[in-house]
């Protein structure tokens, strides 16, 4: 018999995972996220109008269902010019208030390396779900 977590409990788990101040950042190094990564594994983008995004717990909408899903309003990274060297963007990573890496994801291979210019826009829609059960 397979372990079963009811939807109501999944929602509680999501609240526990996301109930902290998280920061969404873009990284510039050619990194494929790996299990042993830390925040230091990722080089945050600088320059070009880049500003990291804060993801407060109050901004998450958590739906009790199967799977239970937490969603957040999309975050736009708009650029005013070329970013600092290496002037590339490969993906995003999320850290908590202590700087501990929470998760990371590389953008689709067809999109990287992305080299922003003035007017470029990267939109990341935060989403987290508890599924598989």
């Amino acid at each position: 018999m397979t372990l079963l977590v009811p939807s109501v409990s999944k929602k509680v788990y999501l609240e526990g995972i996301l109930n902290e101040v998280l920061t969404l950042k873009l990284y510039s190094n050619n990194k494929i996220p790996a299990v042993g990564d830390t925040a230091a594994s990722y080089t945050e983008v600088t320059g070009g109008g880049y500003i990291s995004k804060s993801l407060g717990f109050e901004g998450w909408t958590i739906t009790e269902a199967s799977p239970s899903v937490a969603t957040y309003a999309f975050q736009n990274f708009s650029f005013t010019g070329v970013t600092d060297a290496p002037s590339t963007i490969y993906g995003y990573f999320v850290v908590n208030a202590s700087g501990v890496l929470r998760w990371a994801e590389r953008f689709e291979e067809s999109s990287v390396p992305f080299e922003p210019i003035a007017g470029s826009l990267i939109r990341v829609t935060p989403r987290f779900d508890l599924g598989g059960l």
Binding site: S78, I89, S111, F114, T125, R127, L130, G132
Partner: peptide, 20 residues
């Protein structure tokens, strides 16, 4: 609207449990 160069939705996803 301004062009969106990368429009990425986080993959998300976390599985709990398995079978004992």
């Amino acid at each position: 609207t301004p062009p969106i160069d990368i429009n990425h939705v986080m993959s998300g996803g976390l599985s709990i449990g398995g079978s004992a």
